[in-house]
Design a protein around this nucleic acid. Sequence first.
RNA 1: UCCUGAGUAGCUCAGCCGGUUAGAGCAUCUGACUGUUAAUCAGAGGGUCGCUGGUUCGAGCCCAGCCUCAGGAGCCA
Length: 481
Amino acid sequence: MSRTKIKDLLNSTSYGEIVTVKGWVKTFRNNQFLAINDGSTINNIQAVVDFTTTDEALLKRLTTGAAVSVTGKLIESLGKGQRVEVQVESLEILGDSDPEKFPLQPKKHSLEFLREIAHLRFRTNTFNAVFKVRHALAYAVHKFFNDRGFVYMHTPIITGSDAEGAGEMFRVSTIDFDNVPRNEDGSVNYKEDFFGKPTNLTVSGQLEGELAAMAFGEIYTFGPTFRAENSNTTRHLAEFWMIEPEMAFYELAENMDLAESLLKYVIRYALDNCSEELEFLKGRLQEEEKQKPQNERSELDLLAKLNFCLENDFERITYTEAINILRNSKPNQKKQFKYLIEEWGADLQSEHERYLVEKHFKKPVILTDYPAEIKAFYMRQNEVDSEGRKTVRAMDILFPGIGEIVGGSQREERIELLEKRMEEMHIPAEELSWYLDTRRFGSAPHAGFGLGFERLVLFVTGMTNIRDVIPFPRTPKNAEF
RNA sequence: UCCUGAGUAGCUCAGCCGGUUAGAGCAUCUGACUGUUAAUCAGAGGGUCGCUGGUUCGAGCCCAGCCUCAGGAGCCA
C-alpha cells in the first residue's frame, strides 16, 4: 500500500479510509498514542495503538526516533488537540532507535547542542521549518530571475585568479604536502600541481559574471562561495551561498531597484508559501526573546517585521548624508559610539550601520556613493565633488539585525579609469586581461550586486546565528559531517 | 585574530568563604495507570567536575598554560 503524506492526512476529511503513514516517532505517550512526523509538515499525526492486542515487545520498540510504518483507519480524533488520527491496524518498525543513545528527547534543546548533532537536527521542528523556508527562498530567487529573462550562469568554483580581492582564499592543490616539488631557488614549483599553476576556491563569481552580462544582457549566479577569513561571528561562514546578478546597461538606481524588488519578492514568496513554518518560527523567536530584558526585545514579531519590510520603501541615502546624520546623532555627541564619527572618509562600523537601520530610519537602508578609498577597484568613479572628494557608485543594503545583506555597485566601464585605479591599488592588470577585454571590446555601462543567501535566510526565519540556517556550517576549526 | 563569558550526569543547570559520600529537573530503566498532548505517579541506575600542571593537610571552587564553545569587534555577504 502506498503511503500518504502527513501533510495531506492532516487536511483530509476522508474518514473511514484505510491509510498508511511512514515516518519517525516523536513521542509515544500512555502506551498508545504515537506522534509520527514524516517531514512533509512540522505537525505530527497521532496514531492510536491498541496496546491490549499488540505484542508488548513491539510496543517497547516504539521509541523516539524510530522509523515506523503504520496502517489503519483515518478517523475523527476522540481526544482534544488534533482533528484527525489513525486507528492503527498494523504496525511495522522500519528502523529501531536505541533510546539510551538517541540524543534527541521530546524536550527543548539548545541550538548550540543541536549544532553538534547537525546530522540529526533536521528532525526537530525548528530545523524542519528553517530548511523549508531556505528551500522556498532558493526557489523564489530562481523564479524571480527566470521570470525577468535573466540567464542562470555557472561561474567556476575553482579559480586561477587571486586578484578578486574579496578576502583570503582556500588553496586548491593536489601537491603532496610531505613531498613538495621545488624550484631551484626553493620556491614551490606549481607547474607540478594539478592545474600547472596556483588555484583557489572562488570568493566571488562577479568578474566572470560581468563577462556573461556583456553578452546575455542580464545574468545571475547562485552558488557556493568560500572565504578563508578567520571570522568567528554569528553572520560569517567559510562556505556560504551567494546570489550575484550582473546587468548590462543598468546604472546605480536601476541596480538598487532590482535588489529591492528581489528582496521583497522572495520575502513575499516565503510569506505566501511557508505560513505554517513562519508562524512556528515567530513563536520560537518570542519564546527566545522572553529570556532577554525588555529593551532588547524586537518591537515587531517575525511576521510583522517581514510585512513591514514589504510595505515600505528602503531608505536610500548617500554615504555623505549618512556621515552627517551620524555626526549629529545622540550616541556620537554623547560619545556612546566606540568609534566616533569625526571626518568624512571613515569606514562605517557595524555600530553605525545598526544605528542608521535600527534607530534612525527603523527600516532597511541603502547606502550609496562611498569614498573610493574604502571600496573595490571595479566600482564606477563619480565626478570629484566641489570639496575634492572622490566617491564610487557603490551601494550596500543594510538590514536590521543582519547588517550588510547586499553589496553592489555600478561597474567602471571606462578602461583608462579602470586601469589607472587598478594600478593605484596594485591589482595586476596582466592577470585580469580577460576581464579588461570587456572594456576593450564594446564596453557599456553595467552594474550588479552580491546577496548573501544565508543572511537572507537569517532575516526571514528570525534565527540569530548563521550556523543555524545552513545544514552543515563550515567555520574556523569546524568542518564536521 | 582581539575583547568578554562559559565548560559539572545523555540534555538544561545549581553547587555558599577551599572542608565529610558532588545535587535538581528532564531523559533512560523497572513497576503502576490507560484518551494522552513535552502524559502522570512511585522507585532505580547514571559523574575522568574540558585537558595538563601547580598551590594546599585538603581543589568542582584558587593560580598558570592549553583546548572547545558562545556573545561582541574586525574582515565581509
